[in-house]
């Protein structure tokens, strides 16, 4: 219940935060705190310095910007879930956001924090993958963009360097596409046992664009590229067969709630259902 001691700084600017982060070996960023603090309370995480970025202005926003929507890293799940801009132009994110944790968690947890933690069963990773989002990160030396597809590298591990901070997530407009997020909630934790985010565009009855992001199944969220390839150019009727192997070549997780066999099966079923929904029910 009680975290070990740590030093604490709450910088007012991003550059101050980046300096602090670089100043100590085992410094950690505190965003919404809803992944880090529970781990610290169980003393599974014992950072020496917490850099609280909650007081840096201007990191919480949702803005339209041409073909993209830009989301500040400190935007909470609740803000994403209720964002009119996202609901209109890129509704996959709000659809997943409203299924994260519970109301209190959504009021505090942030998209940047969730992505940086890269929990293998978090919801956002599947979504940003399916959206081909860009994750913008800052360090003392400047800014870089990491494509979502390159971001997740393993369980709780990402392309993010220790001294970098996520500042923004850029997602494309998908208002010309069907989208769906299907999730099997763990009944206790609320995490995704399997979460499947898809977007899909049909062109004269054939699948033109398709993207499938899957969380909860592997060490980290992934794109089901083989299924996407098998579906491109095919009619929606091909979905059932193509999705059967959505977890093939993945080292599938197993726990007391769901074995790897079941997760794999669930991934196939939920992927099919998500694609069918995204195709507007025309896939039967």
């Amino acid at each position: 219940m009680i975290p070990a001691n740590f030093d604490y700084e709450s910088p007012r600017t991003l550059s101050e935060a980046l300096e602090l982060l670089a100043s100590r070996e085992d410094a950690k960023i505190l965003a919404g705190g809803h992944s880090l603090l529970p781990a610290m309370k169980l003393r599974l995480a014992q950072p020496a310095l917490l850099v609280d970025i909650g007081r840096i202005g201007g990191l919480s926003y949702v803005r339209e910007s041409g073909e993209h929507i830009r989301i500040g890293a400190m935007t909470t799940h609740a803000e994403i879930a209720s964002s009119k801009v996202l609901q209109r132009f890129s509704p996959l994110l709000p659809q997943a956001a409203c299924q994260i944790g519970d109301m209190q968690v959504r009021n505090c947890g942030t998209i940047g924090g969730s992505l940086a933690q890269a929990h293998p069963a978090a919801d956002y990773p599947a979504v940003v993958l399916a959206l081909d989002a860009e994750i913008v990160v800052a360090s003392r030396t400047g800014e870089r963009e990491i494509p979502a597809r390159e971001f997740f590298t393993g369980m709780f591990s990402t392309e993010l360097h220790p001294h970098e901070i996520i500042t923004e997530i850029r997602v494309p407009r998908t208002d010309d596409q069907g989208i769906a997020y299907k999730k099997h909630h763990h009944p206790a934790s609320g995490y995704a046992v399997v979460g499947v985010a898809v977007r899909l565009k049909l062109s004269v009855g054939k699948i033109d664009t398709v993207a499938i992001g899957i969380t909860g199944v592997g060490q980290n969220a992934y794109r089901a590229t083989a299924v996407e390839n098998a579906l491109r150019g095919k009619p929606v009727a091909a979905i059932r067969e193509a999705t059967a192997h959505v977890a093939k070549n993945v080292e599938v997780l197993s726990d007391n709630y769901a074995s790897s066999d079941y997760r794999q099966h669930l991934a196939a079923v939920l992927t099919r259902r998500a694609l069918e929904q995204a195709a507007g029910g025309r896939a039967k």
């Binding site: 763990h186 009944p187 206790a188 934790s189 007391n256 709630y257």
Partner: peptide, 16 residues
């Protein structure tokens, strides 16, 4: 005890 926390041990929640 591998289901020894509310993260693993599922109590009924309102919407269940």
């Amino acid at each position: 005890l591998v289901t020894g926390s509310l993260m693993e041990y599922a109590l009924p929640k309102a919407h269940f």
